[in-house]
């Protein structure tokens, strides 16, 4: 996860690249919880109704929510706001977490005539909106005849075809415990995303608290240091990286098989292993 957006597209005109950036920006703005006037913020306040795009994304999220036994939950937004990861990260009291948990649980979210009718709940799609943005960016490229490209949204990457010389795109997975690369993937027409405990965290009294919260406990998940998923789409890779990071190895292996993806996990000692084959 990072803050840059890079597109390498062979044969694309500047005009086409502009459209690619515009589409990625549209999605980023639409689902930004930080912006009060964004679509997702207004949806959460019950001001607007669900549109087709968001309905589709929530359906996808629902499937993952069920498959992960709640480890992946779009209503985790309430907890994220409490911990303040996007503004002032701090350790909330157990009471505050208990209170926030009353407003977490996708199964309890109600829509009436398309409008959110569950006050206090906060829908947060940021765990896979970036990956979705990468997919949409790639769609703009392929619809315009580009068959060799790489889109990289701060570490969420999808590649179209292979490089012009016929070789696959080479993507490294960052070492979660220090500098360097822990693995190199050779990809064609696939996507990779990583969730790691080093992206957004703070340390208090010698304990590291990171932003990948378990919606069931309210605290950061501790199974892994990082999870990287290779999938057909970046939305799937992004969502599953988050889901498996929280769900743990057993459930993670199940999900890897169910969704036909490749999963690499780095344990607390930093060692990388593959959770499932493709």
């Amino acid at each position: 996860m990072g803050t840059y957006f890079t597109v390498k597209a062979y044969g694309a005109s500047p005009g086409l690249l502009d459209r690619v950036f515009k589409e990625a920006e549209r999605i980023s703005e639409k689902y930004s919880l930080e912006k009060e006037g964004s679509y997702i913020s207004r949806l959460n306040r019950g001001e607007v109704s669900l549109d087709g795009e968001t309905r589709w994304l929530l359906d996808f999220a629902r499937g993952l929510w069920k498959a992960s036994d709640g480890a992946f939950d779009p209503t985790v937004g309430r907890l994220k706001i409490l911990w303040g990861f996007n503004k002032k990260p701090h350790l909330p009291s157990p009471e505050a977490i208990k209170e926030a948990l009353k407003f977490v649980g996708f199964g309890r979210v109600k829509f009436v005539e398309g409008k959110l009718q569950s006050p206090g709940f906060v829908l947060d799609l940021s765990s896979f909106a970036k990956g979705y943005g990468v997919d949409r960016a790639c769609e703009v490229l392929t619809k315009n005849g580009i068959n060799s490209a790489l889109v990289d949204a701060g570490g969420d990457i999808r590649v179209i075809g292979e490089k012009p010389d016929g070789s696959p795109w080479r993507i490294g997975i960052k070492n979660p415990s220090g500098p360097g690369i822990i693995k190199v993937l050779s990809l064609r027409n696939s996507a990779v995303a990583t969730s790691g405990d080093y992206e957004n965290f703070f340390v208090k009294d010698g304990v590291k608290y990171h932003h990948l919260l378990d919606p069931r406990t309210g605290y950061p998940a501790r199974w892994f240091k990082s999870v990287s998923v290779v999938a057909d789409t970046c939305m799937m890779a992004d969502a599953l990286a988050t889901a498996i990071f929280v769900a743990g190895p057993e459930k993670g292996k199940e999900m890897a098989e169910k969704y036909h993806v490749m999963v690499f996990v780095a344990g607390q000692k930093g060692n990388l292993r593959e959770l499932s084959g493709r």
Binding site: T6, I171, G172, I173
Partner: peptide, 8 residues
């Protein structure tokens, strides 16, 4: 490095 991108 020969790498086209880093996932993190």
């Amino acid at each position: 490095s020969g790498l086209d991108g880093i996932s993190f």
